[in-house]
């Protein structure tokens, strides 16, 4: 995987962390043809996303290939404070993983 796994932005306001994520992933449906070869591009998609607040699982998402390429995800973490860690880890159907982390300021 390339080093550029995407972006995370977490903003703290009134004890709630507003988290916005952009992941870098092709999210291939398996139904798209390679424009040059005409061959179907195999399915390749993020299956699971785990969102953690200070190391505790706050939300877990199971995804299909119907999520857009370079997936966007936004959610809100409650009871958040300055210095808290927010992390989002994804795993795709080929077993590749990546983690995006932020510290609340």
């Amino acid at each position: 995987m390339p080093e550029d796994n995407g972006k995370i932005r977490a903003r703290l306001r009134d004890g709630v962390a507003d988290v916005k994520i952009l992941m870098r992933h092709p999210m291939e449906t398996g139904r798209r043809k390679d424009p040059e070869s005409g061959e179907l591009i195999p399915k390749h998609y993020i299956r699971e996303v785990i969102c953690e607040h200070n190391g505790q699982v706050a939300m877990r998402l199971d995804w299909s290939w119907g999520i857009s390429a370079d997936p966007y995800l936004a959610f809100k973490v409650k009871d958040a404070q300055v210095g808290d860690a927010i992390s989002v880890r994804w795993t795709d159907d080929q077993g590749q993983t990546a983690t995006l982390s932020a510290q609340l300021s």
Partner: peptide, 27 residues
């Protein structure tokens, strides 16, 4: 998405640590 070839886009497990409000982009 009812008309997609495979309709289920996502299943999300929530905990009390998050607000029950999520945004995504889908095909």
């Amino acid at each position: 998405a009812a008309k997609n070839p495979t309709p289920l886009l996502a299943r999300v497990h929530l905990t009390p640590a998050v607000a029950p409000e999520v945004a995504l982009r889908v095909k």
